[in-house]
Design a binder for these strands. Structure first.
Lengths: 344, 344
DNA sequence: ACAGAAGTTTTACGCGCGGAAACTATTGAC
DNA sequence: GTCAATAGTTTCCGCGCGTAAAACTTCTGT
């Protein structure tokens, strides 16, 4: 029966027979009015079509219900998936998430943060581009003005909290498994990783190999940017052509590199798998949405998407409730779960 | 030197020595003021840190600079890629795009449209979920209130325009190529496609086979939702187990199904490729970002991402300039480009 | 130099809502 | 039934900016 469209709260007040300040209270918090009047209001809402003007609301409210979600590269299914997860949790909590992608570009990330400032968000969840310290200041300034929680990729000391994956857990599990069931792996990575997690994974690999008393082999392939699959493929093709793999077991820094690596193996007729009749074992990290559809399916260490997104949103809500400060920087690293498939 | 932060335009007016209405004009259109005063304003902007409050601006402006971009499923790299493309073009044109994903859920799409209404966007680019007519009304109502352009997936008569891909062009090219270089294909698809494009592709396949005087074979596999790869894989496994493929050439409705199909072939030792020594040729449509990394790389008909996004944004800008109506529904279908890779 | 055009300032109002203050009505326990 | 606490009403102001009107100033072309 939503026929008459009302233009403002005043009209809705006269139409519903309830004073405007009471309506204002109701829209800010439906529980702040008596149940009987709440029922009257909600009955009126079904008869008349009225919604508060969000611009007028946000102009006057000290704290909006907006939250910003910023990811470095949305065309990467990993970020698409985690952003989806976070977005849904924010909606559940009664907030209005806005999703932004830096598309791999630092200056776009800066623009996003500046525009986000104008939205006066209650809080921001930011997965920064991993990059040199030259741009660190922009993010630092932003975090000083807006309650921000970093996720996925950490910047030491910046933001009120960091929620991420425990790269050591990822690498320890994969190296352990590969070593236990055959040979310890060499480590395949990009020479100039776009992301600090890659550096932590290499460090974890070196540490783990040291702990096992084994000699590490790091293969750093050239390439920059976000076209990881192609970089992995080209790197693998070069290594295979030169027969330069130091071991018959390869651990890739991440699944997107591994997807390219496997494509190169297929191209060159290298049989990837575990057991007799196979030339090479390949494992990786992330459990990328397509990792189960590679040929062969990829053995990998899986992110706990659910836990990371849940913790990130929970921490953000806590941060918002405690008025923008948690009293000390909170950090939480979520461990990985090993996924065994045919590639290793 | 951006030291003093000014709280509103009034303060900036006194600080810069320029009247507030003139500043207002400047921020709405920098070219609407005399070059000399424009220079004075921009000089002042470098001394003082001031940006108009976007909520106050949008409350009073009849037409905001917001544009909404709505896609059905952002975790699908196809939509991630086209959304990225569209977003960047909108920014270039001086608008503020907001990206939303329905995450495959019809009720979420409805919520998004309702929230979008509150943002009073100048225009909206909507790639609707393909679904039954029961929800058509929500979209129709929305399009009546907000200047909207549909893309990717059409709904007859809804919105001011539709920009999409020419499914017939996709299918004609792949069928032609397969037929010319070997055998005509059977058609592999989902029985209950999430998207009307799938139906058009099947129809195009039937028509093309008819035109070639050949008998068509449509293989519809069970499954619904957006996990296309798994649906394709399961369907392929069943068909291979029963040896039920009517031809040695398979044309998949889209690349995500094909990715699953290829995974199943690999699993079962079916050698996919073109020429002697291969069991099966597989081709598809879309040129999904991962199509070049499948094993073997996928022969497919590529979307012209660039043309679709460019046309969509151009049409939207035209629509906004002409005050919300183009005087008749505009439709434009972009042809495909055949990409030959090893799978067929 | 001067009329006319174009740009600028002054003044004033409005947008739709948040929120404070003072007052009135309702509630529930004694 | 009284009274205090709670909830609602009335009235008013402020938020930051768009925008209109009128007066004023500066810029054009001749």
């Amino acid at each position: 029966m939503k026929h008459i469209k009302l233009r403002n709260m005043e009209e809705f007040a006269t139409a519903s027979g309830i004073s405007r300040p009471t309506l204002s209270k109701y829209f800010n918090d439906p529980d702040s009015v008596r149940p009987s009047t709440r029922a009257r209001i909600e009955a009126a809402l079904k008869t008349y079509d009225y919604r508060p003007n969000m611009f007028a609301v946000n102009q006057n409210r000290k704290l909006t219900k907006n939250v910003g979600i910023v990811v470095p590269y949305l065309a990467d299914p990993f970020f698409a998936e985690i952003a989806r997860n976070i977005e849904e949790r924010c909606i559940e909590a009664g907030f209005h998430p806005s999703l932004f992608s830096a598309h791999g570009k630092a200056d776009l990330e800066n623009d996003i943060l500046n525009n986000l400032r104008a939205m006066k968000p209650a809080g921001v969840l930011l997965a920064p581009l991993g990059r040199r310290s030259s741009d660190r200041k922009t993010i630092e300034d932003f975090c000083r003005d807006v309650p921000t929680i970093l996720f996925d990729s950490n910047i030491e000391g910046v933001g009120e909290a960091f929620i991420g994956s425990d790269n050591a857990s990822f690498v320890n599990q994969t190296v352990d498994y590969l070593h236990r069931t055959g040979d310890a792996p060499c480590f395949f990575e990009m020479a100039e990783p776009a992301n600090p997690n890659a550096i932590r994974r290499r460090d974890a690999y070196l540490a783990k190999m040291g702990a096992l008393g084994l000699e590490p082999h790091v293969l750093s392939v050239a390439g920059s940017g976000w076209a990881f699959e192609e970089i992995g493929r080209q790197g693998a093709l070069r290594l295979l052509a030169k027969d330069a793999l130091p071991t018959r077991t390869v651990l890739c820094s991440n699944d997107r590199l591994a997807i390219g690596f496997l494509a190169a193996c297929f191209e060159k007729g290298v049989r990837v798998g575990h057991g007799p009749g196979f030339d090479l074992r390949v494992a990786s990290h992330d459990d990328h949405p397509y990792a189960r559809f590679t040929c062969p399916p990829l053995t990998t260490a899986a992110h706990d998407y659910d836990a990371v997104s849940r913790l990130a949103v929970e921490t953000l809500l806590k941060l918002i409730q405690s008025d923008g400060s948690l009293g000390g920087r909170f950090e939480r690293l979520v461990p990985a779960r090993l996924i065994l498939r045919a590639s290793a």
